[in-house]
Every structure is written in C-alpha cells, then in structure tokens.
C-alpha cells in the first residue's frame, strides 16, 4: 500500500508540474488540479497509513487512525476547490477580453518591454 500511495503522489505531482509548464490556460488549470490532488493524498498519508481503524473514540476499537489529517485534508480540499474556481473564472475573463488563452505575455508586450519577440 505504501508503494502504491507513494507512486500515486509522485505520478500526480509529475503530471501536474508538466502540465503547469504548458503555455495555455486549460492545461495549466488541469495541472494545478493534479497538484492539489497529489497534496491531498500526501497530507492524508502524513498521519500514517492504516486500514479499517476508526478516527474517533470507540470502545471496541483496537487502535485509531489520525483524525487530524482528515480534518486538514478537508480544509485543503475546500480551499483548493475555491481557488480552482477563481482561476477558471479569471482565465475565462482573460480569454474573452484578449481573445487568446496563452498564459505567458503576448509577443507584442514583450517587444514593448524590450524583450525579444517570438
């Protein structure tokens, strides 16, 4: 199980970083979502992995899993969900007003600021 969780986190992080380095908003947003999934699983695993144990007091329980990480991951999910919604709206606004969904500066801006044009 440890190997599975660790490789899932690693794969999602790698995919997320790869997608964030693309130049269009859609892959960047998907990449950010992948990264947040990866970090959510990672937070969950930071309370140690257990199977079938209750997080809250139970007189018949033989042991417990860490309830704090579950609360943390819940907070992280809510926040990242909200942030993803914000960036989707903002990217949509930028696309509708500029007519391009590139995330880097357009060539004419760079020429204006003294950088090399494409």
């Amino acid at each position: 199980m440890e190997a599975l969780i660790a490789s899932a986190v690693g794969l999602m992080t790698a995919a997320g970083i790869y997608l964030i380095l693309r130049l269009r908003t859609f892959p960047v947003i998907v990449g950010l979502s992948m990264l947040t999934y990866a970090v959510n699983v990672f937070i969950f695993a930071s309370g140690r992995l257990t199977v079938g144990l209750p997080p809250i007091l139970d007189s018949t329980a033989s042991g417990y899993t860490d309830p704090l990480t579950q609360a943390l991951v819940l907070t992280a999910i809510v926040i990242s969900f909200g942030m993803t919604a914000v960036i989707v709206m903002m990217a949509l606004g930028a696309f509708l007003s500029t007519g391009s969904d590139r995330i880097d500066d357009a060539a004419e801006d760079r020429a204006e600021t003294g950088g090399r044009a494409e």
Binding site: I20, T25, V28, L32, L35, T36, S80, M83, T84, V86, I87, M90, A91, G93, A94, S97, T98, I103, D104, D105, A106
Partner: peptide, 12 residues
C-alpha cells in the same frame, strides 16, 4: 486580467 491569471497560477 492576464497578469492576474499568472499571479494566481504562481500562488496556487
């Protein structure tokens, strides 16, 4: 807006 998208992506 475009600068805003860059800013948000970086901070996320």
């Amino acid at each position: 807006l475009r600068a805003g998208v860059q800013y948000i992506a970086y901070n996320l």
